[in-house]
C-alpha cells in the first residue's frame, strides 16, 4: 500500500511541502508523488533524499512524472 500525493499543476514550493507533509504523516514505507514540471521533480527528489527516503523511482506518463519514494 502506498500513499499518493498529487502535486500536478502546483508550483514550487507546494510539491515539496506536500511531499514532506506526506513523509511526516506516513504510515506506509512508500509514497507516490505526481508532478508535471522538471523543477518540481528535482525538488521533490532532493527533499525526499534529505529525509532519507532515498530509494527513488521515476516514471514519465502523459506529460507528468510519477515519482515513487521509499524509506
Amino acid at each position: 500500500m502506498s500513499k499518493l500525493v498529487d502535486a500536478r499543476g502546483l508550483s514550487c514550493p507546494q510539491p515539496v511541502i506536500k511531499t514532506l507533509n506526506a513523509i511526516k504523516t506516513a504510515d506506509t514505507s512508500e509514497i507516490v508523488v505526481l508532478v508535471d514540471t522538471d523543477t518540481a521533480k528535482e525538488n521533490v527528489i532532493r527533499a525526499a533524499k534529505s529525509e532519507s527516503w532515498d530509494e527513488i523511482d521515476i516514471k514519465e506518463e502523459d506529460g507528468a512524472y510519477r515519482i515513487t519514494i521509499r524509506k
Binding site: 514550487c12 514550493p13 515539496v16 511541502i17 514532506l20 523543477t39 528535482e42 525538488n43 532532493r46 527533499a47 534529505s50
Partner: peptide, 18 residues
C-alpha cells in the same frame, strides 16, 4: 532554477541550503 527568493524561503521553510 536559480531564485533569490527561493534561496531564503527554502532555508526558512525546509532548512534546505540548495
Amino acid at each position: 532554477r536559480f531564485c533569490t527568493m527561493g534561496a531564503i524561503r527554502d532555508l526558512i521553510l525546509f532548512r534546505h541550503m540548495h
